[in-house]
Design a binder for these strands. Structure first.
Lengths: 85, 85
DNA sequence: ATGTAGACTAAAGTCGACC
DNA sequence: GGGTCGACTTTAGTCTACA
């Protein structure tokens, strides 16, 4: 069982956005979140909170749980193990 | 359509924990998150990030998307509308 | 076993500018 | 259109302590 420390949602977000053929600026407009922040989310430099996940899902035309499910599918066979700090 | 500003996961977390008959301290132990932080999450004083959601789901013996789905069901007919700050 | 409070550190999220 | 940098404010998350 491989260990990971943080959930990476970036690739999933980018894929879904590309499927819709829209820009980061469009996501920014739809969510009310800053454009540079969307960029950082896609590059896994930032992590969304649950409210942000709900906003992103709405912008990407799917349900929050579906978005999470897509992220989840990338982590089959991995165990999350945080750094306790 | 009612407007809300933040997603409240607290009640869902507490219900699931009660169903398992375990303490906040047990959740703290299973997730590696601070006990006082679990308390704040249940009282909606704090918001989890996606990594925290995955950890909580594991501790509560369900899949992350199932946890999110349960939260989602409490928001039928609501629209999220953040304060842009 | 839980809520709360205070003080703290790390990370979420904004904004303006430039490439 | 998107990456990045710096400076900023707010919040996630820790920890000790007490009711």
């Amino acid at each position: 069982m491989e260990e990971i420390k943080t959930i990476m949602i970036g690739a999933t977000l980018k894929e879904l956005r590309k499927e819709l053929n829209i820009s980061q600026e469009e996501i920014s407009g739809r969510t009310g979140l800053d454009r540079t922040f969307i960029s950082m989310l896609e590059r896994d430099i930032r992590q969304p909170t649950i409210t942000t996940i709900f906003l992103l899902a709405e912008a990407l035309k799917l349900k929050p749980f579906e978005l999470v499910k897509k992220v989840e599918e990338k982590y089959k066979g991995y165990e999350i193990k945080r750094d306790t700090y």
